[in-house]
Simulated assay, not measured.
Amino acid sequence: MELRPELCPPVAPEQRIADLSTAKATIAKLLERGESADSAIAAFNAGTGHAYTAYDFRIYGSLVTSGTLRSRHPTRFAEGRERHPRRAD
């Protein structure tokens, strides 16, 4: 099935996805060591348009694809689909 372009999430470059993964891993490591991750989380949120907290990074390792996150924060998702980019085909 092919969807109209306006129904598909935007395509993100592989480098953007890699950068976000690195940022999430950095935040997770800071939290595991008991260090403050406030500035890293603020930078992540500023770059993605989200309002995640340390709790989100601790509980949801993959946080951006969690169905639980969708139900916990329904305003972060537009028209029932996640506001997260998809990879190019």
Rank of each mutant, 00 (worst) to 15 (best):
P10G: 07
D38K: 00
C8E: 15
D19F: 07
R70N: 08
E14Q: 08
A88E: 10
G34L: 03
A51Y: 12
G67D: 09
D19Q: 13
E2V: 14
A23E: 01
P10K: 06
L3K: 01
R72H: 08
G34T: 09
A43R: 00
K24F: 09
E14C: 02
R70P: 04
Q15H: 03
A18P: 01
A51N: 12
A37H: 01
A42I: 04
A40E: 12
H50S: 15
A88P: 11
A54K: 01
E35S: 03
R58D: 03
F57M: 05
P5M: 03
I41R: 01
S71M: 14
R83D: 11
D89G: 10
R86M: 12
A28L: 07
Q15G: 04
F77I: 07
A23R: 06
G61E: 08
I59N: 07
A18T: 06
G34F: 07
A37W: 00
T75I: 09
Y60F: 15
E35F: 04
H73V: 10
S36Q: 03
T65Q: 11
G47E: 03
H50W: 14
T75K: 11
V11D: 01
I27Q: 00
L20R: 09
P9E: 09
E82G: 12
E32T: 09
R16S: 10
G80W: 00
M1G: 07
A43P: 00
L20K: 06
T26K: 06
L30M: 07
P10T: 06
L3T: 07
R58Q: 14
S66L: 04
A88W: 09
A88Q: 06
F77V: 07
F44E: 00
Y52G: 05
N45G: 14
R16D: 13
A25M: 10
R70M: 15
E82S: 08
R70C: 11
N45T: 15
R72C: 04
G49F: 08
D56H: 13
T75D: 15
